[in-house]
Design a protein around this nucleic acid. Structure first.
Lengths: 206, 206
DNA sequence: ACCCTAATGGCAGTCACTGCCAACTCGACA
DNA sequence: TGTCGAGTTGGCAGTGACTGCCATTAGGGT
């Protein structure tokens, strides 16, 4: 393993470029025709790549559209990595998520991608299914990570509830945010998330 | 439309019988080999039915195993129907869910079916995906139902949070219950659910 | 006995997805 | 500069999920 220089790799850059290209055309085609009426061959052809190659980049058709969410998940995982051993209270983890959302809002590209996916998902059952699956996997991973940090057993009820609750809050916030943005309202993602968490608190205590 | 007498229909009974038979063998095969390594042809053959007929009963392979959850969803929907106009506070809806769980616990068959599915789901990624999708659809339906009852808009944040939170609590409770039961512990479903809701309250207020 | 309809099976077809192999290309090193 | 190894791609054949269509069979009311 004579590792090549890290960032400046032509192959790596090409790979990322094709991946981005595929994601782009997939989003376009899904938006125009729906994921149901779009075939992998369509996407591959539009991206100038063979169907076989498509599956070297994405495991499923729907997966090609969910890059924004995978990026968010990765960012959250990194953020949690940084603060191993820190508190695992709901409030602190909520701050943690808000931080990642803020970072995401800062870079222009990411946030539009996120919005685009969320809007598609509202009306596309196939995509919604794929996203739910991804969300759930992320929630499980999140649960495992927090459990590991606190040394809790893998069946600890409290940790599971924390993870599920945070997932539920985040999902509700993203949906609400996307719905508002689609109606032309200039909703801020972090503010929406904070408000959602507030509602969650109100609802459970009232 | 000269409607036939409701319950006592030979055709209806036969249909239900084959459906139950397919579900049964699907659960068996999934438990033995996993859903991934089980084909629809396998299930159909074991149930003594053609593959084409299988798809007249279930939309997907995984769907054949999720009868227990669909039954629960239907029961919950009926329960909500009965109490239209009643309160939509988290606590009251929690009672509502607890009632349905209690009714389910009363009839011996249902609860075992539920447990069986949950245990399979723990280790079977394909089934887990299908169940998550079903759960999410149910959460959305639940949300729509509650929103309709209160006359709230379809983008009401509070209602969405209530629905997501209840879904999260229920999921955590069912997982915890199944995990305990699998370890030989004689956990009660309703009690587990109540305890989970308690934890949820603690976690959000602390 | 007679018909209408529901239920089934078989068949052909589409499409998602995978394993395998051959061709090509980048990047390193002599 | 020539060459070699590894990474990347395309094509092809194959499996398996799922659907539309049509012919056949089997309730159940007249």
């Amino acid at each position: 393993m004579t590792t090549t220089p890290p960032g400046t790799d032509l192959r790596e850059r090409r790979r990322l470029a094709t991946q981005a290209e595929i994601e782009q055309v997939a989003l376009d085609l899904f938006a125009r025709n729906g994921s149901e009426r779009t075939t992998v061959d369509d996407i591959a052809a539009a991206a100038g790549v063979s169907p076989r190659t498509f599956f070297r980049y994405f495991a499923t058709k729907e997966d090609a559209a969910l890059g924004a969410n995978r990026a968010f998940d990765a960012a959250l995982a990194r953020r949690l990595e940084e603060r191993v051993g820190a508190s695992t209270s709901l409030a602190d983890l909520e701050d943690c998520i808000a931080d990642v959302l803020a970072a995401l809002s800062a870079e222009a590209g990411s946030i539009e991608r996120m919005l685009r996916v969320r809007c598609l998902v509202i009306e596309d059952a196939g995509l919604r299914g794929a996203l739910l699956r991804l969300d759930a996997e992320q929630t499980v991973a999140f649960f495992a990570r927090v459990a590991a940090a606190t040394g809790a057993s893998t069946v600890d009820l409290r940790t599971r509830v924390v993870a599920e609750t945070l997932g539920a809050g985040l999902r509700a916030a993203l949906d609400d945010w996307a719905a508002r943005r689609e109606q032309g309202e200039d909703a801020d993602l972090v503010a929406t998330y904070r408000r959602t968490c507030g509602v969650l608190r109100d609802v459970t205590t009232a």
